[in-house]
């Protein structure tokens, strides 16, 4: 199809559309009268739920740390402190990203706005990286003085291997979960599922934006 045919085709569609499209004034007026919900009100419930659960978890672990400070095993205390600090970091980053996304000025140019939103969305991946770092502490929090004294070689061997493997995995995920690896199979496998679709889509969009920046 030649350019002139393309334009003529679009124009004929446009004419039909203009003749038949009716703006529902009543419903549009309703929009100008309504009160727009606050950020909190407009957020997806699942996001609010995630933040609330995160805060409750932090409060729970903090309470246990304070309550057992004088007598708990150092392994438990150190593991719990590391876990709760990582969760706090993740929650702060998550909440900050959501606020920035909602505050984005959408009357700015397409590339600028979409790059900002897509970068913020794709940085949700950063939260996952942070959370992966807590892997090893889930293998150390239960170690008590008694276990150290009476565990024996088998305990030390199994404990050592499990902690070492999870430490390696935590470090590997932390260093490899990044934008550049988004097309790798293992990456797509980890971030499969509906809840990750917007993030993965945002990453693909960033790829498209990069392509646009390269054309001069």
């Amino acid at each position: 199809m030649e350019e002139t045919e393309l334009m003529a085709l679009w124009k004929s569609y446009d004419r039909k559309l203009e003749q038949n499209l009716v703006l529902n004034r009543k419903n549009t007026e309703d929009i100008t009268r309504m009160k727009i919900g606050s950020l909190l009100g407009s957020m997806k419930p699942v996001k609010l739920f995630t933040i609330i659960i995160g805060i409750l978890w932090i409060a729970f672990v903090d309470t246990i740390i304070i309550a057992t400070w004088s007598y708990a095993s150092p392994f438990f205390l150190v593991s719990a402190i590391i876990q709760v600090l990582l969760t706090k970091a993740a929650i702060v980053v998550y909440a900050y990203q959501i606020i920035l996304i909602y505050q984005t000025d959408i009357s700015e140019s397409l590339l600028k706005t979409q790059e900002r939103i897509a970068r913020l969305q794709s940085s949700t991946i950063q939260i996952t990286r942070i959370l992966f770092l807590q892997f090893p502490v889930w293998t150390t929090f239960y170690i008590s003085d008694a276990l150290i004294k009476n565990g024996g070689v088998t305990f030390y061997l199994i404990q050592g291997v499990v902690t070492a493997v999870l430490t390696f995995l935590a470090w590997w995920f932390f260093t490899n979960i990044k934008f550049e690896n988004r097309d790798k199979n293992w990456f797509r496998l980890i971030f499969a599922g509906k809840e990750w679709e917007p993030t993965i889509h945002a990453m693909d969009l960033l790829g498209e934006i990069e392509g646009y920046k390269l054309v001069k």
Partner: peptide
């Protein structure tokens, strides 16, 4: 991307703004 959509609006609206 189903991300930046205002899910809940205080006043419920009839969605057909255009016909």
């Amino acid at each position: 991307r189903k991300e930046n959509v205002r899910e809940k609006i205080n006043a419920p609206l009839r969605p057909d703004i255009m016909d």
